[in-house]
């Protein structure tokens, strides 16, 4: 029971931080400072655990798995927001709503690929990270091809 309550508190903390970022519309803490601080906290936690007699490998694996869980929790809220956006932006907004939908699709792709890369690195599954990286490299071309295709097909219909 204590473990489940701890997981819920961890989840709510990550959700709250991501929601705070979304509400503000930009980063609450600058990523160039936040990411080194998070890495420093993880290294410090591993060092504290190792100094208490726990093996270095076990401590590292445990802390990295907790970090991977945090990344998965942080990817959940943008994914749900993208789903709500796909549901809400209907055809009543005109023909150019496609570009907003394409942007939402890009957010889904970006969140998915970043989650795959960082979770794969943190739980030491390099195939997950490699596929995520390949997908991350490919997704701008996909979004650009879709927008280009829509622009020229719509332009063709408008000319006719």
């Amino acid at each position: 029971m204590q473990i489940e309550i701890s997981v819920i508190i961890y989840m709510l903390a990550v959700f709250g931080f991501v929601a705070w970022n979304i509400k503000k519309g930009s980063f609450v803490f600058d990523p160039s400072k936040l990411i080194p601080i998070l890495i420093f906290i993880a290294v410090l936690s591993v060092a504290i655990l190792a100094s208490m007699g726990i093996g270095l490998g076990i401590a590292t694996t445990t802390i990295m798995k907790i970090g991977a869980a945090g990344i998965l929790f942080s990817g959940t809220l943008p994914m749900v927001a993208a789903g709500i956006g796909l549901l809400r932006f209907g055809d009543e907004y005109g023909v150019n709503i496609f570009y907003a939908r394409n942007h939402i699709g890009g957010i889904v792709d970006c969140v998915s690929s970043l989650v795959m890369i960082f979770v794969g690195l943190l739980i030491v599954r390099l195939d997950l990270a490699a596929v995520g990286f390949f997908f991350f490299m490919l997704l701008p071309f996909t979004s650009n091809a879709l927008a280009n295709s829509y622009y020229y097909t719509y332009q063709g219909r408008a000319n006719k």
């Binding site: 489940e4 997981v7 989840m11 076990i58 869980a69 929790f73 990817g75 998915s112």
Partner: peptide, 22 residues
Amino acid sequence: NAFADSAFFWSALIFSVACAFT
């Protein structure tokens, strides 16, 4: 260890549910 396993399991499950919704 139990916290790490449980947190990873539930986070992946919740992320999968969010993916299913999207």
